[in-house]
Amino acid sequence: MRYSLLVALLSALVLTLFISSLMIGRNPLPIWQAAQASLHDTSSIVAIILTEIRLPRALIGLSVGATLGLCGAAMQGLLRNPLASPDLIGSASGAALGAIIVLYYGWQANFSYLLPLASMVGALLTTLLIFVLTGRSAGITTLILAGVAINALMGAMMSLLLNLAPSPYAMRELVLWTLGDLTDRSMDDFWLMLPFTVLGWLLLLGIGHGLRALSLGEQTASTLGVQTLWLRWRILLAIAFALGAAVATTGMIGFVGLVVPHLLRPLVQYDPARLLPVSALGGAALVLAADIGVRLIPSESTLQVGVLTALVGAPFFLHLILRSRYEQI
């Protein structure tokens, strides 16, 4: 009962933020009027602003946020580690590197699906590397250190490749990839990311039982009939698909995958299965809210959405580290 109430509340929050995201922008948009205009007559200015600029922004914010929350919850469940999240361990920076290689060196011109595919491969390879490096039951320190190293390496590669890219504007866009940006994305971008995102989400459907069993330990899970190897691969692929598509579209929006599952875990009585859907909703709400925030802050040039999520997330991360230290003592 309490769980369904939580889901309902979060859904209402996401819906409110989604509609606010459509309304807030350079100028307030009469959204009802614009929606009617877009149904009857596509040639009005308000209709174009609604359907071609604000709607893709809100839809991408919603799906990317849900992906980040979901992947964070799945990874924390799989590794039984509260500090695991795709951005901290380097999956997201691998995805960003893949996207940069394809975009800035002109390889996506002939085949647009190459962009999410390359991003997916980048996420898959970095995540695999982390899994191999840290082993099955990695301690918090090992995982974070491996993540730091991978993130530093990927960051250096991104910087190098953007520096060597043929476009004179490429280097300045490093900030878009490392902090995430939703400005002026179009419906084309949304349609490109959608199939990969949905595929990733579908792969995570029904892993709740496995995660619950896994929380009792790997051997117990095996005796309960959970194929842990298959579960591991399934989550790995799901993260690669959904996160790859998300990062290819918006860049790396940090800390959402870490913070959201953490905040919601007590509310679902530490149940890793129930945590998945609420983390998706929570992630969507956080990214939509941060994206509204960057539009409301008066700044000369556009502010990146990752700035706000990091401002919230980084202190939270420090708090988690401190708490884990006290628990060890």
């Binding site: 596509t42 174009i48 071609e52 600029i53 890219a165 490429a170 179009s186």
Partner: peptide, 17 residues
């Protein structure tokens, strides 16, 4: 050459009828 900066001119909103 590609950059987000240059890709802005190919945004769908500029091509709508």
């Amino acid at each position: 050459t590609y950059s987000r900066a240059q890709a802005l001119l190919a945004h769908r909103a500029l091509k709508s009828s």
